[in-house]
Each structure stands twice: as structure tokens, then as C-alpha cells.
């Protein structure tokens, strides 16, 4: 019984955190994008427009939740949650403070890599159930892309797992040493690029591809269900950035308390900013370029990285 109550409390607070993270992410993206385009971004609601996303959320909640007549209605309604839930779950293993993660498990890294991959199914379902050609194409593209990038992403994390000798993120953060960063730099780059692709972010936003597919797999969604898709996107950004900061950048670097929390937070913010920055810098890839990059560049790079940490370093 206590397990259920704890799960409920955990789930609710996790949902709240991810919602807040999404709000912050939307605002921060609009600010950064604005500056890159020599605009100010939101300025009016709250200091520097920080509550703009909140106002938008209220608007979205009040909007009509439309289900298209051609849609497979049950699947259409359930798809956003299938996308959102795995990403929300992935946050569980992230060490937000020194030596603490909501769920401190010995297979944390594996959990993090495996669980969000389930959202591919949600994307496919969303695309198919819309009964819309564009959405279907977007869903198929999303599935192909995300499955392709699973491989380099997983391989790149392997390097750190070898160095640390553990799969628990909390342990990795505790054992982190500064020279891991240069040694695992190649892996970090692979991890970063594949994560951007995994999140369907520009320049890998082929499944959404506004100019080609309207909005891809969620073209027919509106109101709160559309907002859930957006929340999973920004939740994914936050989760990836935290995970990258914890695994590759040393997280809190052994500093406990508030300072440690702040340190990992700042590192995560840095990664979020870079993701946005990249997104507003480069044009979208073509599908073939996307796959070429995954199989011919990133996967070999990840393998080279494993050779570096698995063969060269023990040999030294």
C-alpha cells in the first residue's frame, strides 16, 4: 500500500517537475532563439517574459481537444501519454544532487537508455492513429530515426561505464575524475548529437519537418494533448541534458548540498542552451544525410571511443 502511495506522490511530483521544466524550456528557447535572430523574445508577462509559457499553457488547457473523424480515436487519445510517460520515467534515475537520485538503481544508465526508447511506439501510434498522411509519414520517419540513433547513443555511454566500472549514475558521479572528460570527449560528442536526433530536435527534426509535414506525427493534435507532446519534447531535453551533465561532465563533482545541486543544474542549463543554439543555427538534414551520419560517422566514432577506453587505457 505504501508503495502505491509513494508511487502516486512520486508520479505527481515528477509530472509537476517535468511540466515546470517544459515551461522553463519553452521560455528559454524563445529567449535564445530571439537573441540569435536579434529579437528580444517574450518580454511582457513576468520579468523578462518568464511567465509567457505559463500563460500559453493556460490558453492550451482551455482550447478545444479535437479528435479527427478519420482518427482511430482510442489510440489517438492515448498516444500522447505513451510518448510522455517513458520520458517522465527516465527522469527517475537522474542524480539531481550528489549521491542522490529519485531511484538509485545499479542499472540506472541502462534504464535511462531503454525506457525513453519506448516513446517511439507512442510516436508511431500518434502518427498512424491520426488518419492523416502527413502524420503517418512523420510517425514512420520518427521511428526510423530514433531506432537508428539508439545504437551510437548507447555505445557512446558505454565508454563511461567502462571507466567507472558501474551502471549506476550516482556511482558514476561519485567516481568521476577530471581526465575522464578529454578521454571520453569523442563519446560525449556522439552522445550529444544522437540525443538531439533522438529528441527530434532541429537540425534532426525530420519527423516534425514543419515545411514538409506540417507538424509531422502530432499534426492533428490540439489543446492539452498537443501540449503533452511539447512537454515530452522539453522534458526530454531536460532529461538528456541532466544525464549528459551527470555522466560526461561530472555532475556535482563530489560537492554535496545546495552547491552540488546548483552545479549540476548549471551544467544541464549549458547543455540545454547548446541544444537550442544548434537548433537555431543549422538547417534540417535530409533523411539520407541523417542515416549516413548515424551509420558512417557516429557509430564508428563511438566504437573508436570504446577502443580508446577499453584497450588503450588499460594497456597504458
Amino acid at each position: 500500500m505504501t508503495g502505491y502511495v509513494g508511487g502516486l506522490v512520486f508520479g505527481l511530483s515528477g509530472g509537476m517537475v517535468i511540466a515546470l521544466a517544459a515551461l522553463f524550456g519553452v521560455w528559454w528557447e524563445r529567449k535564445v532563439a530571439g537573441r540569435i535572430q536579434m529579437r528580444l523574445g517574450p518580454t511582457e508577462i513576468g520579468p523578462a517574459g518568464v511567465f509567457q509559457a505559463l500563460a500559453d499553457t493556460i490558453k492550451l488547457l482551455l482550447k478545444e481537444d479535437i479528435t479527427p473523424r478519420q482518427a482511430d480515436k482510442k489510440l489517438f487519445r492515448v498516444a500522447p501519454f505513451l510518448v510522455f510517460t517513458p520520458i517522465a520515467m527516465s527522469l527517475v534515475v537522474i542524480p539531481f544532487a550528489n549521491g542522490w537520485a529519485p531511484l538509485d538503481t545499479s542499472v540506472g544508465m541502462l534504464f535511462y537508455l531503454a525506457v525513453p526508447a519506448v516513446s517511439v511506439i507512442g510516436i508511431l501510434i500518434a502518427g498512424f492513429s491520426s488518419g492523416n498522411t502527413y502524420a503517418t509519414l512523420g510517425g514512420i520517419r520518427g521511428a526510423a530515426q530514433m531506432i537508428s540513433y539508439e545504437l551510437p547513443r548507447t555505445l557512446s555511454v558505454l565508454a563511461i561505464a567502462i571507466l567507472a566500472g558501474t551502471l549506476a549514475p550516482v556511482e558514476v558521479m561519485a567516481r568521476y575524475e577530471w581526465w575522464w572528460f578529454p578521454v571520453s570527449l569523442l563519446g560525449f560528442i556522439v552522445f550529444f548529437i544522437s540525443s538531439v536526433a533522438e529528441l527530434n530536435r532541429a537540425p534532426f527534426n525530420i519527423p516534425e519537418a514543419d515545411s514538409e509535414l506540417v507538424a509531422g506525427y502530432f499534426a492533428d493534435y490540439s489543446g492539452i494533448r498537443w501540449a503533452i507532446f511539447m512537454m515530452s519534447e522539453y522534458g526530454g531535453i531536460v532529461a538528456t541534458s541532466y544525464f549528459g551533465a551527470a555522466i560526461f561532465l561530472g555532475g556535482s563533482q563530489g560537492i554535496g548540498g545546495v552547491l552540488g545541486v546548483l552545479l549540476i543544474f548549471l551544467k544541464a542549463i549549458l547543455l540545454i542552451t547548446v541544444i537550442i543554439w544548434v537548433g537555431w543555427t543549422f538547417p534540417r538534414f535530409r533523411s539520407d544525410q541523417l542515416l549516413t551520419l548515424a551509420w558512417k560517422v557516429l557509430t564508428p566514432m563511438a566504437l573508436v571511443q570504446i577502443v580508446i577506453v577499453g584497450v588503450i587505457i588499460p594497456w597504458l
Binding site: V32, R35, I36, M38, R39, W277
Partner: peptide, 21 residues
């Protein structure tokens, strides 16, 4: 080329905006 592009957007982002509040 990747870094050249990122540098352009970074310099833009640091510079003054063309719009006003």
C-alpha cells in the same frame, strides 16, 4: 563549418537586438 555557423549565431545572440520592448 559547424563551428563557423555556431559562431555566427552566438555573435548575433550577444549583440544588440534590432527590436525594442
Amino acid at each position: 563549418s559547424v563551428f563557423a555557423g555556431m559562431k555566427i549565431t552566438a555573435v548575433r545572440a550577444m549583440g544588440p537586438t534590432k527590436t525594442v520592448q
